[in-house]
Design a protein around this nucleic acid. Structure first.
Lengths: 112, 112
DNA sequence: TTAAGTATTTAATCTGTTTAGATACATAAT
DNA sequence: ATTATGTATCTAAACAGATTAAATACTTAA
């Protein structure tokens, strides 16, 4: 299991991708990352909440409080903005490009 | 062009991979990264020299001064140790694994 | 003699993640 | 009743690794 440092610079992109499927909240994202990664990536909740705040400040997302009838503690939901969608598009294609370069730098050219 | 933050946690792995092909020095690694990445990754020399120091302390590499007959400034060469080779093996396979997960988290499942 | 290329090093700063707590509500178990 | 567990958010301080910005020094070409 590795820390979320492996997605440094792309934590926001991961969150935005999830938000593109619909509004969601921190606790759920944290569980989604753990699930999708098969427990391999250990992201701390603080990391997500701080990322939310950064993204709200830069207007990539908007927040609202969920209603209380879901049981459990109150939830703060987030919606992706148009600016957020554009940012996701840029960063995800950047990642695809960088990823190929990293393959060369870390593994080398011998693999197909 | 992105900063070397995109390879945070794997800078050492990139250096070790280069060292597995033979001894080399900081300035050359810096140029190699710039070349292999087609100028897309902007790694600062300080980043490399600090990584060298960390790796020397943890005995992943060993250093020696090159002789002066190469022209230009003196060079400090590095050799990978057995421990370094093992570390490379671990980190490179970790990266392959994490990379697949990041593909799911950043891009999603719809691509082949 | 000036500029440009080669080459290393260090201190201070920045950014994003982690650590380590606190708070609060609902439900199941003792 | 009260304790434990799960759900859910938030913050301050610490930490790690990268960047900034500077200094040093040698060689070769203009």
């Amino acid at each position: 299991m590795v820390s979320a440092d492996v997605l440094r610079g792309y934590t926001e992109t991961v969150i935005l991708r999830k938000l593109m499927e619909g509004d969601t909240y921190g606790y759920e994202i944290s569980h989604m990352i753990s699930e999708v990664s098969g427990g391999e990536i250990d992201i701390k909740d603080a990391t997500i909440y701080i990322a939310f705040r950064r993204m709200e400040e830069s207007e990539l997302i908007k927040a609202y409080w969920g209603n209380d009838d879901t049981g459990g503690a109150r939830r703060r939901y987030y919606t992706i903005t148009e600016k957020g969608k554009e940012y996701y598009k840029e960063k995800s294609s950047e990642w695809l490009k960088i990823n190929k370069i990293l393959m060369k730098l870390i593994i080398g050219d011998e693999q197909k």
